[in-house]
């Protein structure tokens, strides 16, 4: 997607920013270092390998997305990083502190947002939950006094702060989880499905918050099935498959697994059977529909540059075009394509 920076109307800005981020981070020390990590469950005939020789790093201020199909080992890895689970092989460290031997030091630096409906005291208010978990994370009383209201404001829960959590919607609970995760000012944040249950506006606000964290130097390991989160936030993608690292790539390189840069959907008033042979090389017609309004063609563009635009534009100038829609290749298409190739 090197020449595709201008393609995605919605992603061009953030992606360009991410690339700069990677350049900046290339000299920074790793915030998270995962070296040859393995984890098995059970024993004997019932031995199940959840992770096998997994290695990768996350730089300071970098946002890395951990992707994989269900059962790929993402949750196991997040549990190991959050010190909930011990690895059976390999080493995990956070800013040099080993997650097995120096647990407390790791816990001081890592914030975790597990997400979902659970993980909160439902009979207590949002403020009480925030204060309690803040205290458990080692936030001092003085800091709690100043930061708890600020966090509630940041996630938009000021008005509901004194209501019992059992009255909260799923999105409000999720926002409270995020406030709890951010309250101790972690240097590393593990985000597990952060936008689950959030409406589009809330999800966008959360993405803004995470972007701000990157600017503050916080490293983020993001696990999400909503690939829009990954597309908007991540610098890099680590793809797990059957417990192994199947890919560790910059986001744009991973996105190229979709096999095309963009889709152009054109509606032409009159059928033009001769259009297809005239299309620039590499442009495929992937769908064609005849309706009373005319013919709708879905074209996939291999790259996204001035030349391609020019050729396509001059071609469409000859037709009676009634509608054109351009959409950048989505990350989920890259994800699906990658999994299919691996299979």
């Amino acid at each position: 997607m090197a020449d595709g920076a201008g393609a995605g109307v919605c992603v061009a800005g953030p992606r360009r920013g991410n690339v700069e981020g990677i350049r900046k981070l290339s000299t920074s020390r790793p915030a998270i270092e995962v070296v040859g990590v393995g984890r098995t469950y059970g024993s004997g005939a019932k031995l199940l390998t959840a992770l096998d020789d997994v290695s990768f790093t996350v730089g300071e201020g970098e946002i890395v997305a951990l992707l994989g199909a269900n059962g790929a080992g993402k949750t196991t890895l997040v549990k190991i990083l959050s010190t909930l689970l011990l690895p059976t092989a390999g080493r995990v460290s956070v800013f040099g502190a080993d997650a097995v031997d120096r647990v407390k030091q790791v816990r001081r630096q890592v914030g975790v947002v597990f997400g979902g409906d659970r993980g909160l005291y439902t009979r207590l208010s949002g403020r009480e939950n925030l204060r309690f978990f803040g205290m458990l994370a080692g936030v001092s009383r003085a800091e709690l006094r100043s930061r708890a209201p600020a966090m509630l404001d940041r996630v938009g829960l000021v008005d509901a702060a004194d209501r019992r959590v059992e009255t909260y919607s799923r999105g409000m609970r999720q926002r409270l989880h995020i406030a709890i995760g951010l309250l101790p000012r972690p240097r590393v944040l593990l985000l597990d499905e952060p936008t689950i249950g959030l409406d589009p506006a809330e999800a966008q606000r959360l993405r803004g918050t995470v972007s701000q964290l990157r600017r503050d130097g916080v490293s983020v390991l993001l696990t999400s099935h909503y690939l829009l989160d990954v597309e908007r936030l991540a610098d890099r993608v680590v793809m797990l498959r059957a417990g192994e690292v199947a890919a560790d790539l910059p986001l744009d390189d991973f996105a190229s697994f979709a096999g095309y840069a963009a889709t152009v959907t054109v509606t032409i008033r009159h059928p033009l059977p001769e259009l297809e042979p005239l299309l620039p090389a590499g442009v495929d017609v992937v769908a064609r529909a005849e309706t009373v309004e005319g013919t709708t063609l879905e074209l996939r563009l291999p790259s996204w540059g001035g030349g391609m635009f020019g050729q396509l534009g001059s071609l469409l100038d000859r037709a009676d075009v009634t509608d054109v829609q351009v959409r950048a290749a989505r990350l989920e298409e890259a994800f699906t394509s990658f999994l299919a190739r691996q299979a």
Partner: peptide, 18 residues
């Protein structure tokens, strides 16, 4: 059952206090 035990045992404060 409420899902809060994980956060309790991974805090920097001793979970036994809780």
């Amino acid at each position: 059952a409420q899902g809060v035990l994980a956060r309790t045992v991974t805090g920097t404060m001793d979970a036994r206090l809780v």
